[in-house]
Amino acid sequence: MNYKIAVIGLGYVGLPLAHAFSEKYKVVGFDIAQWRIDELESGIDRTLELSEDQVKEAMANGMEFTNLLEDIADCNIYIVTVPTPIDEHKRPELTPLVKA
């Protein structure tokens, strides 16, 4: 089977995970922030999880960055890596997860 993986959320967890998967699989990195997509397409990772060379390596492997839902519609694996902060009672705030 040909796997196409969508990694939803390109922060300090999602971006390195997407990079690792891009070594063997077709990967689409999805983030709601256009500025984040623009930076990554320029090779810049402000979280410093990946170097510029690593971001460019992922793109050379065929990884794409997008904020358009239609670009991940044909993926057959979805991995959600969005924040789940906790409140003062240590209950998770699931709004980012539900929105994803």
Rank of each mutant, 00 (worst) to 15 (best):
M1T: 08
N2H: 11
Y3N: 01
Y3K: 02
Y3H: 00
I5C: 01
I5R: 00
A6E: 01
A6Y: 12
V7A: 03
V7D: 03
I8F: 15
L10K: 07
G11H: 08
G11D: 11
Y12P: 02
Y12T: 03
Y12N: 07
Y12R: 14
V13I: 15
V13A: 13
V13N: 11
L15R: 00
P16W: 02
A18F: 02
F21G: 02
E23S: 04
E23L: 11
K24F: 07
Y25C: 06
Y25F: 11
K26W: 02
D31W: 04
D31V: 11
D31Q: 09
A33E: 14
Q34I: 15
Q34M: 15
W35G: 07
W35H: 10
W35V: 13
R36S: 12
R36A: 12
R36K: 15
R36C: 15
R36Y: 09
R36M: 09
I37C: 09
I37T: 09
D38A: 13
D38H: 10
D38W: 08
E39D: 15
E39A: 13
L40M: 09
L40T: 01
L40V: 10
L40F: 09
E41F: 08
E41D: 14
E41A: 12
S42A: 14
G43K: 00
I44F: 12
D45A: 08
R46A: 13
R46E: 11
T47Q: 03
L48P: 00
L48F: 14
L48N: 14
E49W: 00
E49I: 01
L50H: 08
S51T: 07
D53Y: 10
D53F: 12
Q54I: 02
Q54L: 04
Q54V: 00
Q54Y: 01
V55Q: 10
K56Y: 10
K56Q: 11
K56D: 09
E57V: 04
E57D: 12
M59V: 05
A60H: 07
N61M: 01
N61L: 02
F65L: 08
T66C: 01
N67F: 12
L68M: 13
L68F: 10
L69D: 12
L69W: 10
D71S: 13
D71C: 11
D71M: 13
I72Q: 06
I72D: 03
A73C: 10
C75N: 06
C75R: 00
N76I: 00
N76C: 02
I77E: 05
I77L: 15
Y78I: 05
I79H: 03
I79G: 03
I79W: 05
I79D: 03
V80G: 08
V82M: 10
P83F: 05
P83L: 06
P85F: 10
I86S: 15
D87S: 07
K90R: 12
K90C: 11
R91L: 14
P92C: 13
E93W: 07
L94F: 06
L94A: 06
T95V: 11
T95R: 09
T95W: 08
P96Q: 02
L97A: 06
L97R: 04
L97P: 01
L97S: 05
V98Q: 10
K99A: 15
K99P: 03
A100Y: 08
A100K: 06
